[in-house]
């Protein structure tokens, strides 16, 4: 059900995004930062699902508040003539990699466990066969 919602949302979003009017290039920086922040939240959400401590409220608040905060920080940086958005991107991307690492480790471990399991079964069957013969 959740996967279905995600797919439908993605398709509708793509249609809207393609048909939406052009945004000025000036604002595209802000949007990019917001996208990075949201993606960070998404990966954080996935890793928390894997860790089995996923909370919808935390996910949603992270999703929106992080995006808005990063946009505000970018605007502040432009006013102060400091490229704050670089720092935001750095933080978000490093967090994304952390979360990706967690996800990767989880699946690799699962996979290796499965392999181990298979090998064990195979070994058992082998020993059984040798015993039988």
């Amino acid at each position: 059900m959740i996967y279905l919602a995600i797919i439908v949302g993605c398709i509708l979003g793509a249609i809207l995004g393609i048909n939406a009017p052009m945004i000025s290039y000036t604002y595209s920086t802000y949007l990019a930062i917001a996208v990075v922040a949201a993606l960070d939240s998404v990966f954080g959400g996935i890793s928390s699902v894997l860790k089995k401590n996923f909370d919808l409220k935390i996910f949603l608040s992270g999703f929106f508040v992080n995006s808005i905060l990063s946009i505000l920080l970018t605007i502040l940086g432009q006013k102060l003539n400091v490229d704050i958005y670089l720092a935001t991107i750095f933080v978000f991307i490093s967090r994304m990699f952390n979360n990706l690492t967690i996800i990767r480790r989880y699946y690799v471990e699962k996979w290796s466990e499965q392999l181990e399991h298979l090998r064990k079964i195979k070994a058992e069957t082998d020993t059984n066969q040798s015993n039988n013969s």
Partner: peptide, 27 residues
């Protein structure tokens, strides 16, 4: 609860993908 969760996650996915595609177009 599950329905609420699905709807909210779907909406956030919708927003995220819409913004990403808009950004693609602008770039």
């Amino acid at each position: 609860e599950k329905i609420v969760m699905a709807v909210t996650i779907g909406i956030s996915a919708f927003i995220l993908v819409a913004i990403i595609f808009m950004q693609f177009k602008v770039v």
